Structure formats: structure tokens, C-alpha cells
Amino acid sequence: MSDCLLLIDVQKGFVTERTEYVVPRLKELVRMGFDHIVATKFVNRPGSPFVRHMGWRGMMSSPDTDVLDFVEEAADGVEEKNGYSAVCQRINDYFHENGVDRVYIAGLDSDCCVLKNAADFFDLGYDVTVLMYYTASNGGEDSVKAARTVLSRMIGEDHVVDGRLDAD
């Protein structure tokens, strides 16, 4: 069996003054020797729930939707999504074809897409670990802390890792 680093929405439009600190951490993370790396790319659409219910029209086009270059280069694939979750047939097929049973999650935003994907892949039976040191939120540090609290209840305290990983 193998592992996969799932990088959630590491895109130009989500890198702001509240999240930019995590970019060098993520650059370090992608060089740590995961068996597979898959990235997601969120693209908002006219008429989406984000537009209809929240009035949010961000992340609809390039350059905001562009995945950071180092993520694009490191990833085995980039999956576009139009909602919070990356669970789709293509990723599930990729995981099955490559024997992925352990999913490490990092990226943006801790309290939204990272949390949702951790719960969704947990529900599918994967051994999920969220690497909190390698996440950030445009909601700020309080949102990161809230996500950590919820994640430890949802996927288990032992599956929420706070510190920096060793390269080994």
C-alpha cells in the first residue's frame, strides 16, 4: 500500500497576507518523499452556491485560480473542483489504481476545504492525517484553531499533526 499527499487549493487567489506564511512550508513538504502527490484547484462558477448564498464571486478565473508553480510541478495530477470536496471518481480511481490507503492533507483553507476533505476521505475509509503546520486559513489563526479542534473530534486526535515533519 502507499500514501498520498493531498494538497488542497494552493492557488494564487488563496495566498494572502493571512496565509502566505504557509507557502515556504508547503515547498518543503512536497520534497519529503510521499509516494504520490495530488493537488486540487477550486474554481468558482456563476450560479454556484457560493455566489447564490454567500454573494462571493472570487476564484472564478486566472490568475486567482492558478495553482502555485511548485505545486503544479510536484503533483502527479491536479483535480479541478467547484465545491469544498475533492472526492470524485477520478481521485478515488487514482487512489485505488495506485494502492493509496493513507492520505496526508495540507493546504488552504484549514477550516473549509481542508476540514471537509479530511472528513470525506475518512468517511471513504482512508487513513487520513491532517498536517496542521502545513495549512492556513484566510479566516485567520482563530479559524485554524477551530479547524484543529473539529478535526481532532472528526478523524481522531492522533490524525491531526501540529508540528513540522522530518524529511525522513
Rank of each mutant, 00 (worst) to 15 (best):
G77H: 13
V78M: 03
V78G: 04
E79P: 10
E80Q: 09
N82D: 07
Y84C: 15
Y84L: 14
S85N: 14
A86H: 06
A86L: 11
A86F: 06
V87R: 07
R90T: 14
D93H: 13
D93G: 10
D93F: 05
Y94D: 02
F95P: 03
F95Q: 01
H96K: 12
H96S: 15
E97D: 10
N98F: 12
G99I: 04
V100Q: 08
V100G: 07
D101Y: 10
Y104M: 10
I105S: 02
A106Y: 02
G107P: 01
L108C: 03
S110G: 09
S110T: 12
S110P: 05
S110Y: 04
C113K: 02
C113Y: 01
C113T: 09
A118D: 03
A119E: 09
D120G: 08
D120C: 08
F121A: 04
F121C: 10
F121H: 05
L124V: 12
G125V: 06
Y126A: 03
T129P: 03
T129E: 05
L131T: 02
M132V: 11
Y133A: 09
Y134C: 00
A136K: 02
S137F: 01
S137I: 02
N138P: 02
G139C: 06
G139M: 00
G139L: 06
G140A: 11
E141N: 13
D142F: 05
S143E: 06
A146D: 04
A147T: 07
R148S: 12
V150M: 05
V150Q: 01
L151Q: 13
L151T: 11
R153M: 15
I155Q: 00
G156Q: 10
G156P: 01
G156L: 06
H159D: 03
